[in-house]
Structure formats: C-alpha cells, structure tokens
C-alpha cells in the first residue's frame, strides 16, 4: 500500500517533454514528447486551487510553432495521455485544440484551466503529449512543407508548454 507523504503543486515545461525539434506528419497522431514519473512519486495532470472559496483548475499553456514561424493551432488537436511504463495501458486525460491559450502566458481568463485529474501516473509511467495536424494546420499548409510535415521548432522561444501537475511523494 502506498502512503502519500507530501503533495506539491507545480508544472511541467517544454524541456520536460522534448529537447529537440519534432516532426509532425499530417493526418497522424504524433508523439510530441513524454515525461516519466520519477521514483517514489505519483503525478496527476492538473492542479485544483481554492480561489475565493471556490475550487478551480490552474491555468495551462501550450503553444507549438513550426520551423517556418507559424503556429500549429486551429486545425490541430492535442491529447494529454497517461501511459504505463510498458505501453500496455493508457488514458487520454485531456483533449483540446493545439492553441490552448489566447494569451502569451498562462492566464486565468484566457487559458484552459486544468483541475487535478483523478488518474495518476506512478513510478516509470509517463505523461505524453500527442498532436494531430490536418493538412491546413491553422495558417500552415502542411502540403506545402518539405515531406508534407510540420516541424515543431524546439528552439523557437514562442514554442512553450506549461502543464500544471500535482506531484505526490509516496512511500510503499
């Protein structure tokens, strides 16, 4: 039996998921990146905060730019999955348009507010971000790109992820 010893409300950034450019072919669900749960921890996507007496989710932010400088947005879809270490079991915990936030940074009024999800990854299980791009990925015509694929530009400072998570330290 695992016993929770501490609970931290924090977030994952783009460096936690990927550290190089990611190729995104059109019409295929593509893994953007994954974060592996460290030893003796459990992680749930999202953070539930109490603000003015009401429980609310924490603001998240995902923006993925192509190497051409355009943003992968309106015709793209993003899934956040929790997946076990052996890729045997997975659950989609969030599904959204690729541009989560209308503002430049996580904003309570413009961002997708993520409550703490009831599904937690354990040690060695993974939180994954997947993207699906259609031919016309919101301003980018993927057919016009080299090899019919967009390339998420890791080094572009506009490309950013801020995924709130609730991290538990556990003992067994």
């Amino acid at each position: 039996m695992s016993v929770v010893s501490n609970k931290f409300q924090t977030s994952l950034g783009k460096d936690d998921f990927f550290t190089a450019d990611v190729k995104v072919p059109k019409g295929i669900w593509t893994l953007v990146g994954e974060y592996t749960c460290p030893a003796q921890q459990e992680i749930a996507v999202g953070v539930t905060e109490i603000i003015n007496g009401g429980a609310t989710g924490m603001a998240s932010y995902v923006r993925l730019d192509d190497t051409s400088g355009s943003q992968l947005k309106s015709n793209c879809r993003i899934r956040i999955k929790v997946v076990d270490a052996n890729d045997q079991g997975q659950v989609v915990v969030e599904f959204s348009a690729a541009q989560w936030s209308a503002s430049a940074t996580p904003s309570r009024t413009a961002s997708l507010l993520l409550h703490e999800d009831s599904r937690r990854v354990q040690e060695d299980s993974k939180i994954q971000i997947w993207i699906y791009a259609t031919e016309d990925a919101g301003g980018i015509d993927i057919d016009d790109l080299v090899n019919d694929q967009a390339v998420i530009d890791y080094s572009d400072s506009d490309t950013d992820i801020n995924l709130p998570i609730t991290r538990y330290t556990v003992t067994r």
Partner: peptide
Amino acid sequence: ATTESADSGVMRI
C-alpha cells in the same frame, strides 16, 4: 486510517 482510503477514487497508471 491512511491517505489511501481518502483517495479511493484515484486510478493509478
């Protein structure tokens, strides 16, 4: 009497 019972609705993956 552990936190385990308190978060029985939690699914671990």
